[in-house]
Computed example of a mutant assay.
Amino acid sequence: MSSQRVFKSSDHMQVSDGEPIRSVVQESEHSVIVAWHVEPGQTIAAHTHPEGQDTWIILSGHGDYQIDEQGNTVVVTSGDVVVAKRGQVHGVTCTSKEPLRFISVVAPIEAGYVRLPPRSRVDT
């Protein structure tokens, strides 16, 4: 087990032309810490952690943070701490001109991950 206790988030941010990359900073028997770099227009799909909590610390940029299965969102921006408790829907789309960068802490390690199916579009 590593004794390192201080990590530079910038060392873990990975740019991607496709979907954002989940870059693990540190994993233990208790939690996983992930660095996210989300380019403008990119989305982290709506999902839940059925057995745990996902806490995000927004470092830069801003985005539309999905808060329910209906697709309702709130704006998150640098300096925000965002908490999705056990089973709560969450996902984000970067709406800023610069990347949305944040750290995610998922606990416990057995939190699980369930991606929501894409929402049906109803044409009127």
Rank of each mutant, 00 (worst) to 15 (best):
E39F: 00
S104L: 00
P50Q: 11
S2T: 13
M13Q: 03
S104C: 04
T124R: 14
G52Y: 01
P108T: 04
T73D: 04
S60M: 11
V76P: 06
S16A: 15
P50K: 11
S9T: 12
S60C: 05
S2Q: 09
G79T: 04
Y113P: 04
A107P: 01
S60N: 05
I103M: 03
V83H: 04
H30G: 10
V32T: 14
V15A: 08
Q66R: 13
V34R: 00
F7A: 02
D64S: 14
D123K: 12
S120N: 15
Q66S: 08
R22S: 05
I57T: 14
C94N: 07
K8A: 12
V32F: 07
P99I: 02
A107C: 05
V38K: 00
Q70H: 13
N72K: 05
V24A: 02
W56M: 15
G79M: 10
V24E: 05
L100A: 09
A107L: 08
E27V: 03
H47N: 08
D80L: 06
D17W: 01
T43S: 14
T73H: 07
G91D: 04
H49I: 06
V83G: 09
P117Y: 09
S78H: 12
S2V: 09
L116E: 06
G91C: 10
Q26I: 14
M13K: 07
A84L: 13
W36R: 00
C94V: 03
I33V: 12
H49A: 03
P108D: 04
Q70A: 15
L59A: 13
K85D: 08
G52L: 01
G87C: 07
E98A: 03
I109Q: 00
V6R: 08
G91E: 07
S23W: 01
L59P: 00
V81R: 13
V25E: 01
E110V: 11
G61V: 12
M1W: 08
M1R: 09
M1H: 13
V24M: 04
A84P: 06
I57S: 09
A35I: 07
H37W: 09
S2P: 06
R101I: 09
G52K: 01
G71M: 10
Q26T: 11
H37G: 01
S3L: 15
P99T: 02
S104V: 03
P108F: 07
V89Q: 00
Q4S: 14
G112A: 11
V25P: 00
R5H: 13
V24W: 08
R5N: 10
E69F: 07
R121M: 06
D17N: 15
R22G: 00
V76N: 02
V38W: 02
S96D: 12
S60G: 12
V24Y: 05
V81K: 14
T77G: 07
V6M: 06
I57Y: 15
V92K: 01
S120L: 15
V6Y: 02
D54A: 15
S2N: 14
V83W: 08
P20G: 02
F7V: 00
I109N: 01
G61P: 04
T43V: 15
P50A: 07
I67V: 13
V15P: 04
R115L: 15
V38F: 02
V114L: 14
S9P: 03
P117V: 12
P20C: 05
W36Q: 01
V122I: 15
E98H: 02
S120M: 14
R101E: 11
E98L: 08
V74D: 09
G112K: 10
V82M: 02
H90S: 00
K85R: 12
